[in-house]
Amino acid sequence: MKRLLALVGFYFFTQATIAAPSINVGGVYDYLDGDKSTFLKRIFNGGDSTAFVKVNILEILFDADGTAREVPLKTQADKSARDGLMASPARLIVPANGMQGTRLLYMGERDKERYFRVRFVPVVPEKEDEFAVSSEEREDYKKSLSAGVTVLAGYGTVFFVRPKDTRFDSVIENSPGNYRIRNNGNTVVVIDEFKDCSVKNEQDCQPTTKHHILAGRTFNFEKQSGREYRFTLVEGEKSKKLDVKG
């Protein structure tokens, strides 16, 4: 679970500029339900210049020991046999203080859950980037980014594709010193807004966290006397608030 959380990326590209784009992709975790094949992802630009954004996708694979790897998607000569996630469009021109959307389309088998890293990378457009702008427009944009220093920030999100026959089966074991949730289903379960606080002092709390329990995995924590653990167990569209005393 911690390894999966580490896959959420935030990275920077430095360019010379005064005016600058500033993109926001909303949630960094998105979920495609078993009966859906497309997902609309909106990208916002709160900056004061146009954002040119490339969308890149990698598949996340997990080794037997739980280690995550990001690998390029396999390309098929026959596009009808495409297997994986694609973005349409994969190049976005987002105006200042505006919004654009891209549809994430999954094509392939849905017998098991799959995971993808979707990167939204702001760039200074070049000819090979295939943005629908002229050479003059590219040069004008570069000149507008030449008088100072700014940071172009990109985001990496995690996209979960649930199996067609989605099944939730969370088994809870609440022993005197330990609390455990095992995911016996076939799709991810979310532990949202996990809070570890003192019973006597509500201000004495650990940072709120979010956890993903992949199919076949377990989430557990040691209960301590005088502490209270509050969180929401999310299974798709269903959610349940839980309160556990140490």
Rank of each mutant, 00 (worst) to 15 (best):
F39A: 11
E235F: 08
E70F: 11
N45P: 05
G236R: 06
T208V: 15
V244E: 00
V161Q: 00
K2H: 12
N186T: 05
V25A: 07
K200M: 14
R227T: 04
E113V: 04
V189Q: 06
A90S: 15
T17Q: 10
H212N: 10
G246F: 05
A19N: 14
C205P: 01
G98C: 08
N174W: 05
V188A: 11
G216Q: 04
R182E: 04
D30V: 13
L32T: 09
D129W: 01
E130P: 01
T157V: 13
S225G: 10
V199I: 15
T67N: 12
G27I: 07
V189M: 03
L145C: 13
R230Y: 03
K200R: 13
Y155H: 14
V199G: 02
R230D: 11
I181F: 00
Y31A: 09
L4I: 06
D165G: 07
D129R: 01
I23D: 03
A20P: 04
E126I: 03
Y115S: 04
D83Q: 15
F131M: 05
S146C: 10
G154C: 00
V28H: 11
T157N: 13
V8Y: 11
I57D: 02
R42P: 00
R69T: 11
Q203N: 12
V189F: 04
I57S: 00
I172D: 03
R217Q: 14
S146M: 12
A19G: 10
I213K: 06
P89M: 04
A19E: 13
L214I: 07
T187H: 01
G66A: 05
T17W: 06
L92S: 05
K74G: 12
N97W: 08
K245T: 14
Q76L: 08
I18W: 08
F160K: 01
G9A: 15
M1C: 10
V8F: 14
P72M: 02
G246T: 07
T208C: 05
L152T: 00
D65A: 12
L7H: 09
D243A: 11
D78T: 10
G236T: 08
M1T: 14
Q15L: 12
E137F: 04
S146E: 10
S170P: 15
V71C: 09
F219W: 14
E173D: 11
L233E: 09
V28A: 09
D33W: 09
F39W: 13
K238T: 13
P89Y: 03
L233N: 05
F120V: 03
V121M: 10
R182S: 08
K142D: 05
F221C: 04
F52D: 01
K41L: 12
N97F: 10
V55A: 10
K143T: 15
